[in-house]
C-alpha cells in the first residue's frame, strides 16, 4: 500500500492528553466528534488544516501518557493516514496498530512541516518528495504487521478466530 500526503510536524513527547484531552474523551464515543479536537492544546488549528491522507510527523516518544485508545482513533478519524515518529510510547503503539492506524518508526528529523511524502508500508520506505530524499523505516514486528494487514485486531480475530501469535 502506498500512502501519499503532507507532513504536519510536531516535537518530542506528544502525550495522549495533547492528542485528545480528557475533557472531551470522557464525554462521548463519537470519534468523528472527538477528531475535531485532536491536538487542540498543542496546535489549535490542526484539525481544520489537516487533509485526508496527511501524516503526523513527530520526534521521540509519540503517544506517551495514558492508555486512551481515543488517541489513535481521533487521529485516524481526523483523516491522518499514518504517524511517523522516531519512537512511540508502548501502549499508544499497540493501540494504533489494533485500530489499523500505522505507526512508522524512522529517523524523522529531516522531514519538515508541509513536505509532500510518499510512504510505502510494504517496503518500509518514505520518499520526501519535497526534498528528494528517501528514508528507511524500522520494520514492524510480524505480529503487528499481521494485525495491520487485517485492518486492526477485532477484524483479525473475527477472520482468524485466534490471537495474532502462532
Amino acid at each position: 500500500m502506498i500512502l501519499k500526503g503532507k507532513a504536519h510536524r510536531f516535537g518530542d513527547d506528544v502525550n495522549t492528553d495533547y492528542i485528545i484531552s480528557g475533557r472531551y474523551k470522557f464525554k462521548t464515543l463519537d470519534m468523528k466528534e472527538l477528531a475535531t479536537h485532536v491536538m487542540e492544546d498543542l496546535d489549535p488549528g490542526f484539525y481544520s488544516r489537516v487533509e485526508e491522507g496527511d501524516f503526523i510527523v513527530a520526534g521521540s516518544n509519540f503517544g506517551c501518557g495514558s492508555s486512551r485508545e481515543q488517541a489513535p482513533l481521533a487521529i485516524k478519524y481526523a483523516g491522518v493516514s499514518a504517524v511517523i515518529s522516531e519512537s512511540f510510547a508502548r501502549i499508544y503503539f499497540r493501540n494504533s496498530i489494533n485500530n489499523g492506524l500505522p505507526s512508522i518508526v524512522c529517523d524523522s528529523s529531516g522531514i519538515e512541516d508541509g513536505d509532500e511524502l510518499e510512504v510505502d508500508l510494504e517496503n518500509g520506505t518514505i520518499k520526501d518528495l519535497t526534498r528528494g530524499t528517501e528514508i528507511e523505516t524500522s520494520p514492524l514486528p510480524k505480529v503487528m504487521l499481521d494485525i495491520l494487514n487485517e485492518g486492526g485486531l477485532v477484524p483479525f480475530i473475527n477472520k482468524h478466530g485466534r490471537l495474532p501469535v502462532e
Binding site: S67, R68, E69, I91, R94, N95, N98, L153, V154, L163
Partner: peptide, 14 residues
Amino acid sequence: TGVGSTDFAVGMLT
C-alpha cells in the same frame, strides 16, 4: 501493565 480498550476486549473474550 496498561493496555488500550481493544486489547482489553480481547482479554475479556479469550
